[in-house]
Design a protein around this nucleic acid. Structure first.
Lengths: 208, 208
DNA sequence: GCACTGGTTGCGTGTCACGCATTTTGTGTG
DNA sequence: CACACAAAATGCGTGACACGCAACCAGTGC
């Protein structure tokens, strides 16, 4: 990667970070108050340059999450070949989304702000394509004819989203990785939990 | 429903239909050429009124799909109580999305136009909430504590999206209902297809 | 050192979302 | 039936925005 590409990447990340930071500062309610001019200034760049990279504030704010999702395919491919699909996917996803435990404020902003809903879904769903390819490769299925890989990929990204929501909304003390493990387990074991009271940590007060 | 609500609903649908129709006419590439003024005029309302119903062209174009998804919960609830979850969900989803076989041009516009991607995902994901509630009710799980219902709901809506893509992209002659059945089967049976060559209709040329 | 490719910036334009005030159209009551 | 009230439709004005275009500047390769 030459200087050009590196600075370009840096600019993109700077704008994205600035956008997310400002959004968090102004709060989910004052999102409309985050002006393009502010983002650009905070990132040390002209407004015109800002929209050479992004065509909407929403896109800039969710850029980090989108970049993250783009790496999903590679994460799965880097798992050992013999590993069963469910274990490989679980390990890959957990590694990808919890390498540093995600920033709760940022995740909350992205996932819980109505105006960002579309972009957030887009950001997470960017993992689907690469994931589907990797799953197809791993299971020896044909992405063009079999629906299995794409369905699994969609289910997995759905599980990631649900894990995020649950981690944010329910006042759980679990790590994000633990919640992810639970949601992914749902995807890979069809049976509904016998009743309620599922993998809550033994001894924990279930009703809190 | 009194006159007020009915006319309001009618206006909403008129605007949505006009928006989708114009988008299809101008083609996926000329989407930017669909002006708010055109949609409003086509729907027989003022541009300002259009804006009372939708806050973006994308939202108007995807309105029908969104309304459809909103009915998912009710569709599942209306299945007989004793029916196993997988059968109930499959029947409900197929009934909901293939009551009339969907319009291919419209679905293609919504699902395959990059500019609409966010709104399309939003439209489909609107089924998740109601679906999750209905699934929780049916399985006796607790939406607040168990992740199972939400994960399944997300997986199901993902399967619907994948079915739509597959139905549009692969030059299949299957009905949409048939494709849906296949994708939903993936969700409810964890095992990957033994090899390739899955439920292609017996005797059909697999390589076309 | 020099031409070139590619990124940044400023400017101008057409479009848009939305607040506010006004008019029109249903709804319920005496 | 007339009238007061609620709700929706409309017109206008404003601030913001996305993007095309052209000038400029900084790495890159010969």
């Amino acid at each position: 990667m030459d200087l050009r590409a590196r600075t370009k990447q840096a600019t993109r990340e700077a704008i994205g970070q600035a956008a997310l930071r400002l959004a968090i500062e102004r709060g989910p309610h004052g999102l409309a108050l985050v002006r393009v001019h502010d983002i650009a200034t905070a990132a040390g760049v002209s407004p015109r340059t800002y929209n050479n990279y992004f065509s909407s504030r929403e896109e800039a704010i969710c850029a980090f999450q989108a970049d993250q999702s783009r790496r999903a395919g590679q994460a799965l491919r880097s798992r050992p070949a013999g590993e069963p699909l469910d274990q490989a996917v679980t390990a890959a996803v957990i590694g990808l989304y919890t390498d540093p435990e995600p920033d709760k404020a940022g995740l909350r902003m992205i996932m819980m702000t109505p105006e960002l809903e579309g972009e957030a879904l887009k950001a997470f769903s960017m993992a689907e394509g690469p994931l589907a390819e990797a799953i197809a490769a791993r299971t020896g299925t044909d992405l063009a004819r079999d629906v299995y890989p794409a369905v699994m990929a969609a289910a997995v990204t759905g599980a990631v989203r649900v894990a995020g929501r649950h981690w944010l909304e329910s006042g759980t003390t679990e790590s994000f990785a633990a919640v992810l493990r639970r949601t992914l387990a749902c995807v890979f074991s069809t049976a509904p939990p016998a009743a309620s009271v599922p993998p809550a940590p033994p001894g924990a007060r279930g009703d809190l």
